[in-house]
Design a protein around this nucleic acid. Structure first.
Length: 516
RNA sequence: GGGCCGGUAGCUCAGUUGGCAGAGCAUCGGACUUUUAAUCCGAGUGUCGUGAGUUCGAAUCUCACCCGGCUCACCA
């Protein structure tokens, strides 16, 4: 317990008025380090090992209200703990706002109750963590408040928090020092929690359907399973270059070959490409593979999954996103890709099987094709420019050209078309799925085609031939429906965020001067 | 990568025609035993993103660079 004389002597640690003239960030810290020393002088450990609270802020409020409803006086002694977010000193009484995991609670410290311990308040600052024990009452203004009998400091902070009223708005600081964002902005913490809830909802949904969750390598010898520029790395002991995976697809399909008929992975993939509102170099995907299913089965699963997530996060299948009111309730419209392209641009890709012909048609439709060289690159651009912006409400574009779908099975009805679909919401692609190609001869031919195209068009990413994967499916993969969902984008849609950086706790940013 | 906008105190922001660097919160000193953006009295905030240049004089004008935002291109 603190001694008055020690408390008095601690004043000598304080800078006198004249020394305050240099106050800046370092001075803030210096003052707080001195307060830390002052606490130690009083025999108080500013960094104790634990504190056993009995109630969170919300639990305390609830238990008090229950007693009130029964017209009982609340006499129970409880313990709460949290970070000091505000303090209002009244001389011989002080009100302190504590913030904890599920809310805030006000605690009241009175000098006649705490005696000499009241002096310890001199060494507390906004940002410090404390635990407080006492009983609950309502103040004159009706605020449920803990009347503190004893309290402990749990952690002394050395840096000031952002301002209490405006909080932290600087976007760069919000992303670089996310903890400050989480402390200051309720939206930030809500988005973080909602994303977590989304992922656990997806996991439960898949598990309930009998899917087995697995983890596959992130360090891979060939970055296959998608069209993207990979990150390169090197393993010293093995003395080999490796890549960070760009997709989980080919490993998961190996597992289907192995007899895991329903398998999924939620994990990070890495693409060494541009960064913008919808792209972060590392992002999270759900990929799933289900034997004896085709892309139609996968479509119904996606509708169910996303509408379930919408209900879990927002309590409704209808979700507000910016100006839009999105309705995720199944079924989502199935829109034939070829028909849709014809409708919005007049271009029928069946009539333009050659690069030059398609390019000419697109140029005639006033599309900038200066950056594209391959047929699939051109068609992708056509879809991005003309079709995607029209897809606001959740829908599926179905039946893609085989030429741009090297891992998808051809339609039995037309060998130019693959049984593939992509899901779109607000013009944003949220998933890509197909009836998996399990004919190993065809798959090898498609990979070889991709390798050839990469040689021809060095600027465009193509899928890569993965011999090990081909050997796997040569052992026989049953008919399989596969799916990839961008979790980050789904999180954006369900948390009403227009930037992927808002749903990733630590998004990739350029280096700044504070980095080593 | 291109275009546009921005970077001033720990935080939120002003800063006029180029003429001593400002406010609120936070901090520090003092008063105050039911406050809650507490209040009242008093005090100090600083690499004006960085570096050059123009000028008697630059937060302000010019150039280069760094970081961020939006946007276009590319990608998912």
């Amino acid at each position: 317990m603190a001694q008055l004389e020690l408390a008095a002597s601690s004043k000598t640690f304080r800078p006198e008025g004249s020394k305050l003239s240099q106050q800046n960030e370092q001075e803030f810290i210096k003052v707080r380090v001195e307060k830390t020393a002052s606490l130690r002088q009083k025999g108080i450990d500013p960094y104790p090992t634990s504190y056993k609270r009995t109630h969170t802020s919300r639990q305390a409020e609830e238990v008090f209200e229950v007693a009130e409803k029964k017209n009982e006086e609340f006499t129970e002694t409880i313990k709460v703990a949290g970070r000091i977010m505000g303090r209002r000193g009244m001389g011989k009484a002080s009100f302190i706002d504590l913030s904890d995991t599920d809310g805030r609670i006000q605690v009241m410290m009175r000098s006649n109750v705490l005696d000499e311990d009241y002096e310890i308040l001199d060494d507390l600052d906004i940002g410090d963590w404390i635990g407080a024990e006492g009983t609950l009452f309502r103040t004159r203004t009706g605020q449920i408040t803990l009347q503190v009998a004893t309290f402990s400091i749990l952690c002394k902070s050395l840096r000031p928090l952002p301002e209490k009223w405006h909080g932290l708005t600087d976007v760069e600081t919000r992303f670089r020092q996310r903890y400050l964002d989480l402390i200051s902005n309720e939206d930030a913490i809500k988005t973080a929690k909602d994303r977590s809830l989304l992922v656990s909802t997806i996991r439960q949904f898949m598990t309930k359907k009998g899917f087995i969750e697995v983890e596959t390598p992130m360090l891979v010898p060939i970055a296959a399973g998608g069209m993207a520029h990979p990150f390169t790395t090197h393993h010293n002991a093995l003395n080999r270059d490796l890549y960070l995976r760009i997709a989980t697809e080919l490993h998961l399909k190996r597992l289907v070959v192995g007899g895991i008929e329903k398998v999924f992975e939620i994990g990070r993939v890495f693409r060494n490409e541009g960064v913008d509102l919808q792209h972060n170099p590392e992002f999270t995907t759900l990929e799933s593979y289900e034997a004896f299913s085709d892309y139609n089965d996968v479509m119904s699963m996606v509708e169910q999954l996303v509408s379930t997530a919408a209900i879990t996060l927002n309590g409704s299948e209808t979700v507000r996103y910016g100006e839009e009111e999105l309705d995720f309730s199944p079924p989502w419209p199935r829109i034939d890709l070829r028909e849709k392209i014809i409708q919005v641009s007049g271009i029928d890709f069946f009539e333009h099987p050659e690069v030059d012909s398609l390019k000419t048609a697109m140029r005639a439709a006033d599309i900038d094709v200066s950056q594209q060289v391959s047929w699939s690159g051109l068609l992708d651009k056509l879809i991005s420019d003309k079709v995607e912006p029209t897809l606001v409400q959740p829908c599926f574009l179905v039946n893609y050209p085989v030429a741009m779908s090297p891992l998808a099975k051809k339609s039995p009805a037309d060998d130019r078309i693959a049984e593939r679909f992509e899901g779109f919401v607000c013009g944003m692609e949220i998933c890509n799925a197909f009836t998996e190609l399990n004919d190993p001869i065809d798959q090898r031919a498609r990979f070889e085609e991709q390798e050839m195209l990469r040689q021809e068009f060095q600027n465009e990413e193509m899928d890569r031939l993965d011999e090990d994967f081909l050997v796997a499916i040569e052992h026989g993969m049953p008919p399989t429906g596969g799916l990839g969902i961008g979790i980050d984008r789904l999180a954006m849609l369900l948390t009403d965020n227009s930037s992927i950086r808002e749903v990733i706790l630590f998004p990739q940013l350029r280096s700044d001067r504070t980095e080593g």
